[in-house]
């Protein structure tokens, strides 16, 4: 995650300057210095814990634990932190009205997990001789589709970076993935249809919220239409299972 690294580097930068200014402010009082370092350490550790979201910065008491370098921490912690990031972004997609900054820090793990889940789910219920093909087609549609949509909106004049757009499109499959897992349990076509429609609308709504560029007012439909097609074909594949 290149952007993650970048964030932490930036934070270290802040950390240095903060220490300097605080040291010059209170050169005689050791207590003040201590306090300054504590605060700054908190800032750094908070960022390490939750990536770019600055939520978890209130644990002033157990500094010893959170000062710990990421090089020395157990692998499990590292993995859990990444998984937490992914989960936070998925929640963001489910509630797209909230803070939209979380998806600025792109990663491709979430899209990969969602894509694998959906592909495995679809190939499970495919006819015997087609399951491999269904898996492949799902995979190709999601990744190539996201890439083509991104290139399309870039060519129309959008300014979003390539991988960020792919990340958003990938995360916005989440409602449809949930629906596909629920339809495993339900056997009534009408209920499936309604669920898939809801999931489809949700995905399109969320992705448009994240991807819409105000500068493209004349071309908005041209940008949205491919996104609509993309989620439509995924929804259709879920429905006909």
């Amino acid at each position: 995650m290149a952007s993650g690294k970048y964030n932490s580097l930036k934070d270290l930068d802040n950390f240095d300057t903060n220490v300097d200014t605080n040291m010059f402010d209170t050169p005689s009082s050791s207590e003040g210095l201590d306090y300054a370092i504590n605060i700054n350490m908190d800032g750094v550790s908070g960022n390490m814990d939750t990536g770019s979201s600055n939520k978890n910065t209130t644990n002033t008491n157990n500094n010893n634990k959170s000062i710990q370098d990421t090089l020395d921490e157990p692998v499990l912690d590292t993995l859990l932190r990444d998984l937490n990031n992914v989960w936070a972004k998925m929640k963001q997609v489910l509630m797209p009205t909230g803070n939209q900054n979380l998806l600025r820090d792109w990663d491709l793990w979430g899209p990969l997990i969602l894509c694998m889940t959906l592909a495995i789910r679809l190939s499970m219920s495919a006819p015997e001789n087609q399951s491999a093909m269904v898996f492949t087609i799902t995979f190709i549609i999601i990744w190539c589709g996201a890439a083509v949509i991104t290139v399309n909106s870039k060519l129309l004049g959008g300014k979003m970076s390539f991988f960020q757009s792919i990340c958003i499109l990938g995360y916005c499959i989440f409602p449809l993935t949930i629906v596909s897992l629920i339809t495993l349990l339900i056997d009534y076509f009408i209920i499936d249809l309604i669920l898939v429609l809801v999931g489809f609308a949700w995905s399109v709504y969320a992705s448009i919220g994240f991807l819409t560029d105000v500068r493209l007012s004349q071309k908005k439909t041209l940008v949205i239409y491919p996104i609509f097609l993309f989620y439509f074909i995924i929804a259709w594949m879920i429905l006909i299972e």
Binding site: N152, K154, L155, L156, G157, Q218, K219, K220, T221, L222
Partner: peptide, 10 residues
């Protein structure tokens, strides 16, 4: 290629 995408919805 963006000169080939220089169109509006209309």
């Amino acid at each position: 290629y963006s000169k080939y995408f220089n169109v509006d919805t209309k």
